[in-house]
Design a protein around this nucleic acid. Structure first.
Length: 295
DNA sequence: AAGAACTCCTGTTGGC
DNA sequence: TGCCAACAGGAGTTCT
């Protein structure tokens, strides 16, 4: 589910209740998500203080006073929710849970902080996971080491895209979905960024590559399109399709602003363009694009 | 060795 | 209403 804007929105929601706060009690309701919870997960967290909560790519990373880092990924359907002390959670519960007091289905972990705030993690598909990694080893961890540039940093430039695209055989869609190139994009924002750049998802990535001199106009437009769509999505609180919620339970709003994603058969929104948005399948995932203004 | 296919898991939706 | 197939925001692993 969550791509960079959603993870960043969740990070901002969790920050005030986690940063500087100490875990009082940690409960898991099953042994594993995508991977098993770390050995002695609750024990290693209890009493630990969160020094800093950062996002890298689609990962949330809580740096702890114990010298470990709690590395979290939401997969497709992971949701963190913050409850203030005593806050009702009826909107998270089905009738059965509400009436019996049972844990909501798919609520796999509960973090109680000293001071009373509670953070819960739910994840129906369980593609998410949590790991504990020594802080000193984090940068070299297998999941972190190969990650590409942060798209909202100054590292993402037309020249960077042009350089990484040299000799690529894959299409632009696969190129941008590859976390080793640009970290944090997913299906939605790749489609939207390619629309803004007026590039077709099926174009070979090598169209970005420079021949000697300057980056191509494609690379320039694409770098700008990626940054623009991500910034706008963060400002809107992310995109809610099904499962995604901000940490306070509210939905994002950026799905109302999609230019092509999920708009198959609808007219292209670009002024003056008479195209009809098309859907195609690439690497088993849907791509949406305007066949008239994206080349 | 890059790139595509398959895999994990559950829920929802659309067609018949 | 029921049943089944297709599909969903990700990405590690296995294949070719």
């Amino acid at each position: 589910m969550p791509e960079l804007p959603e993870v960043e929105t969740v990070r901002m929601g969790l920050e005030p209740v986690l940063t500087g706060q100490t875990f009082a009690r940690v409960t898991t309701h099953r042994a594993d998500l995508r991977f098993p919870f770390p050995e002695n997960f609750a024990k290693r967290l209890t009493g630990a203080r969160v020094m800093r909560l950062e996002r890298r790519a689609k990962y949330l990373i809580a740096h702890l006073s114990t010298g470990e880092a709690l590395l979290m990924h939401l997969g497709m359907t992971g949701r963190f929710h913050v409850q203030a002390k005593g806050e009702a959670v009826a909107h998270l519960l089905g009738d059965y849970e509400y009436e019996t007091g049972a844990q909501p289905k798919h609520m796999h972990a509960v973090f109680d902080m000293r001071g009373g705030a509670r953070v819960t993690y739910a994840d129906p598909r369980r593609f998410g996971y949590m790991l504990l990694v020594p802080d000193a080893e984090l940068a070299e961890h297998a999941l972190m080491r190969g990650l590409g540039v942060e798209p909202l940093s100054d590292d993402l430039t037309p020249a960077y895209l042009a350089r990484r695209a040299v000799g690529r055989r894959s299409d632009l869609k696969a190129f941008l979905m590859d976390q080793r190139i640009v970290a944090g994009l997913g299906n939605i924002y790749v489609c939207e960024a390619l629309f803004l750049a007026q590039l077709r998802p099926s174009r070979p990535a090598s169209v970005l590559a420079t021949r000697g001199g300057k980056p191509t106009v494609h690379a320039t437009r694409l770098a700008a399109g990626i940054k623009a769509v991500l910034k706008a999505a963060i400002a809107a609180g992310g995109s809610t399709l099904r499962d995604y919620r901000q940490a306070d339970g509210s939905t994002g709003a950026f799905q109302n602003t999609f230019q092509v994603y999920g708009r198959e058969g609808e007219p292209c929104v670009r002024p003056g363009c008479r195209g009809i948005v098309r859907r195609s399948t690439q690497a088993g995932r849907s791509s949406f694009y305007c066949p008239v203004c994206q080349h």
